[in-house]
Design a protein around this nucleic acid. Structure first.
Length: 643
RNA sequence: GCCGUUGUAGCUCAGUGGUAGAGCACUUCCUUGGUAAGGAAGAGGUCGUGAGUUCAAUUCUCAUCAACGGCUCCA
């Protein structure tokens, strides 16, 4: 007999070799029907795999994250089976579960797959699923595994096998499809009741663009049609929040073929948001001891040679403009310009920390396939600043920058983000990263310490550093699930020396300052793109392009509306009158969909009493108020940047 | 940059080898209406761009540009 410990601490005895499925059945048949895998001693196993030792056991259903990934992983195998049956001779690479579904990479041998084929595959998958084929696990020797895939002619699987040790190789078979796979899998294909193949994409083999591009099929599956329908409805909802759609609807920005890809034009409404953000940044930075500077949009090639950017980033810069034999580049970053301001005067330790801030305009020639609405553009306005300090000041300066993030995030109610400590990859020193192995380790340790001291939760990610040092990135996700760095806080131990920046220390010796690059509000483009989705277009009053709309019941009350308009304008409130010949219901509807925070309905009653009937977007009628009272309240709301 | 898909009115989308249609938005008129769509009329498109096939192309083919979904990249 063996002892099985359950998550609630209960311990039960079972026959040696019992499977998780049998354990589930011993509890209840209903439970057993929902079990698709099991976590045995923290490792996810097939529900049909026998347990021989005392173990902790967590039965996994669709509702567990591990259950879902197992379910999707198994669906990937099912899809592969369907592909093989419809398109014989296809070679497979890997087919893992992902956040929302699964994919499988395959070499179609020059064949093309169309949307129509996806529908055919779905039908085939449904047919195969109904056969309730069992996913069978089989341990196999490396020699036999190699033999199997050699006969099948699948060089990709053979490549995978190369990295595996004999004795740890398993095959899984369901129906007519056998795959090299460590598992685990759901009990049988019958659990898969609804499948949607979502898209066809190219994906480089092993993620390397020098390698051959395989075809990747994405899909998602569910234990019931209802759940698939709900998922699709959720996707539809997410699309409504898409900043590209909202940005157009709300007149925030536009793109034009003649201007060029990735070069957004900010419309009046978007410009108001930009100005409010800059106002916030200026107030905050002034209070934190920053000095504002302004620098040109271009610079000579020599400066980027000095900075060291050219070898690393030339590909991402617009090609140079050549004048009288001198090459000029559009700036892709503000740091070198700021360094030159630092270098313009002799600096003493008494001047440090020196903090130079600029909402700098940068141009980056992003790859055409990477452009994405406002989130990834070729012209960007960065909430940039560079802090020059000595080693003793570094920790407190770095900490202050992190605190500034948090302060901003509170204002915007941003709580879904991940702080990422981005480190270097030692094997890429001298290529992607400046070749200073010791300085890398030292500064990385310094940053890690600050994060720990401040109790900031973070994840460490190798190979994401800047070429000149480690950084803290704030990662966010767009409404359609793409990940972006919203804000960044970087250490730079390289450029100070490259630019021969110095200060005279207390001992009267020249010393090179450390540099912190920081952009807590990221760029206007990405930040506003993010805010559009974050607020679903319903900006808080302080950011809303139009804050108040006056809605007269009929044009008899237009004169009163005009008087109101003037009073509100005098109070610096962004306001307009709906003077269209429409009924009040229509005016309200249009203003609601335009997401204007406040509506002031005025008719006979309000005119007689010098009042306004206040309606809040999304909340409805708030009742009537004195004009003065309303103005004071909204002014307070705006001043406090209430969300 | 690579793989795949798409491109028709301001927006959302039908449609056709014989130079185009709906709803919303817009303009005008009627209506002066109290908290999410009042009625009528009208205007608006070289069907992304270029070339080819054809008597004839928005429709078929090719190229190109752009957007979208991924991959790679992301200071």
């Amino acid at each position: 007999m063996i002892k099985i410990t359950f998550p609630d601490g209960a311990v039960r005895e079972y026959q040696e070799g019992i499977t998780s499925m049998e354990v589930a059945k011993s509890i209840s048949e209903g439970l057993a029907k929902r079990i698709i895998a099991a976590s045995v001693n923290g490792e996810v196993w097939d529900a049909s795999r026998p347990i021989y030792n005392d173990s902790t056991l967590k039965l996994l259903s669709w509702n567990d994250a591990e259950g879902k990934s197992t379910f999707w992983h198994s669906t990937a195998h099912l899809m592969a089976e369907a592909v093989e049956s419809l398109f014989p001779g296809v070679k497979f690479w890997v087919g893992p579960p992902v956040e929302n579904g699964f994919y499988y990479d395959m070499d179609l041998g020059g064949r093309h797959i169309s949307e129509e084929d996806l529908r055919k595959l779905e039908v085939k998958m449904a047919e195969l699923a109904k056969q309730n084929n069992v996913y069978t696990r089989k341990e196999i020797s490396k020699a036999d595994a190699v033999k199997y895939f050699t006969e099948k002619g699948d060089e990709y699987k053979l490549d995978l096998l190369q990295g595996l040790k004999d004795g740890e190789i398993t095959f899984y078979t369901q129906g007519n499809f056998t795959d090299l796979c460590r598992g685990p899998h759901i009990p049988n294909t019958g659990f898969i009741k609804a499948v949607k193949l979502t898209n066809i994409a190219g994906a480089y083999w092993k993620g390397d663009e020098k390698n051959k591009q395989l075809t990747r099929l994405y899909g998602v599956s569910f234990p019931s049609q209802k759940e698939l329908d709900e998922y699709l409805a959720l996707l539809e909802e997410a699309k409504k929040r898409d900043h590209r759609k909202l940005g157009k609807e709300l007149g925030i920005f536009t793109m034009d073929d003649d201007v060029g890809p990735g070069l957004p034009l900010w419309m009046p409404n978007g410009t108001i948001i930009i100005e409010e953000l800059e106002r916030l940044a200026k107030e905050t930075e002034q209070a934190a001891g920053y000095h504002r500077v302004v620098t040109p949009h271009i610079a000579k090639e020599s400066m980027y040679i000095t900075s060291g950017h050219l070898p690393y980033y030339q590909d991402s810069m617009y090609p140079p403009i050549e004048l009288e034999g001198v090459k000029y580049y559009l700036k892709a970053m503000n740091c070198p310009h700021h360094h030159k301001i630092y270098a313009a005067e002799p600096r003493s330790y008494r001047d440090l920390p020196l903090r130079l801030a600029e909402y700098g305009t940068c141009y980056r020639y992003e790859q055409s396939g990477e452009l994405f609405g406002l989130m990834r553009v070729r012209c960007l306005h960065m909430n940039d600043a560079h802090i020059y300090c000595n080693k003793e000041q570094f920790a407190s300066e770095f900490k202050a920058v992190n605190e500034m993030y948090i302060k901003y995030f509170k204002i915007f109610g941003i709580d879904k983000y991940v702080m990422r400590l981005s480190l270097h990859e030692p094997s890429k020193l001298g290529q992607k990263y400046i070749n200073e192995p010791e300085l890398w380790l030292e500064t990385e340790q310094m940053v890690r310490r600050v994060l720990k001291e401040t109790g900031t939760p973070f994840v460490e990610v190798p190979d994401e550093g800047a070429f000149y040092g480690p950084k803290i990135d704030v990662q966010i996700w767009s409404t359609i699930g793409r990940e972006f760095t919203l804000a960044t806080n970087q250490v730079d131990f390289a450029q100070g020396r490259r630019f021969k920046l110095e200060f005279t220390n207390k001992e009267n010796h020249p010393e090179t300052p450390l540099i912190i690059h920081r952009a807590p509000l990221g760029t206007h483009e990405r930040f506003i793109g993010f805010l559009l989705e974050h607020y679903a277009g319903k900006f808080p009053t302080w950011l809303a392009p139009l804050q108040v709309k006056i809605l007269p019941i009929s044009d008899k009350f237009l004169p009163y509306a005009q008087t109101l308009l003037e009073s509100l304008k005098k109070a610096d409130i962004r306001v307009a009158v709906d003077d269209r010949n429409e009924k009040i219901g229509k005016k309200i509807r249009d203003t609601e969909t335009a997401k204007v925070p406040y509506m002031l309905v005025v008719g006979e009653k309000e005119v007689n009493e010098n009042k306004v009937a206040v309606r809040r977007q999304g909340k409805g009628d708030l009742g009537t108020k004195d004009v003065e009272e309303f103005i004071n309240e909204i002014k307070k709301e705006i001043k406090n940047r209430e969300s």
